[in-house]
């Protein structure tokens, strides 16, 4: 359990599946994540089981973002595509309960996750790709200290158009707790 001021990162329980599908099937939430496809309860449960497997193998670490006071699940974040030799990983985060957007909870979760990646997993570099349209996320990443590294042009297709994927990265030497 990694505790911040307002939120905590914890492991997933199977019962989180119901909360996940409730929010995850919302297109506002899904549009920047993946290709919208209705997710079933069993899908989400299977995904949760997979998070247990991948962390055991050291391939990816996914956490539930929960409110500290009530333990209510509001999002997911994780480090994946871990490469042990290059000591790098890719970061993902989503606050899928829209009620909690714009409150700094995502920023807090990313800081906890970076701390885990750099201080516990001994990573040297953490990178991420974000959609060109997702300016709110870009602002947060820059505020935290991620450096823009360019883009993959027109690499993602959603809602009828091709979009650039913007690259951001952060090195252990640049990370301020």
């Amino acid at each position: 359990m990694f505790e911040g001021t307002n939120i905590q990162l914890r492991g997933f329980e199977l019962e989180d599946a119901a909360t996940i599908i409730k929010y995850y099937n919302d297109l506002d939430v899904r549009r920047f994540l993946d290709h919208p496809f209705p997710l079933s309860l069993q899908d989400a449960e299977q995904w949760i089981r997979n998070t247990w497997e991948t962390s055991k193998k050291g391939k990816a670490y996914f956490f539930a973002i929960a409110l500290k006071e009530t333990n209510q699940l509001i999002g997911t974040c994780g480090l994946f595509a871990l490469n042990r030799i290059n000591r790098k990983a890719e970061l993902m985060i989503v606050i899928y309960n829209k009620k909690y957007w714009g409150k700094g909870f995502g920023t807090e979760a990313i800081r906890l996750l970076l701390n885990y990646g750099f201080k516990q997993l001994n990573l040297n570099r953490i990178l991420l790709f974000t959609h060109d349209d997702n300016t709110r996320a870009q602002h947060i990443y820059e505020k935290i200290g991620f450096k823009p590294g360019g883009k993959r042009r027109q690499a993602s297709y959603f809602e009828g158009a091709y979009h650039d994927l913007l690259l951001y990265d952060l090195l252990a030497s640049e990370f301020q707790e």
């Binding site: 030799i85 290059n86 000591r87 790098k88 040297n124 570099r125 990178l127 450096k147 590294g149 360019g150 883009k151 993959r152 042009r153 690259l167 990265d169 090195l171």
Partner: peptide, 14 residues
């Protein structure tokens, strides 16, 4: 289009 910093560890350096 993009630049990956420290992306590869080889021969003792990133």
């Amino acid at each position: 289009s993009a630049h990956h910093r420290d992306a590869l560890f080889q021969n003792g350096i990133y």
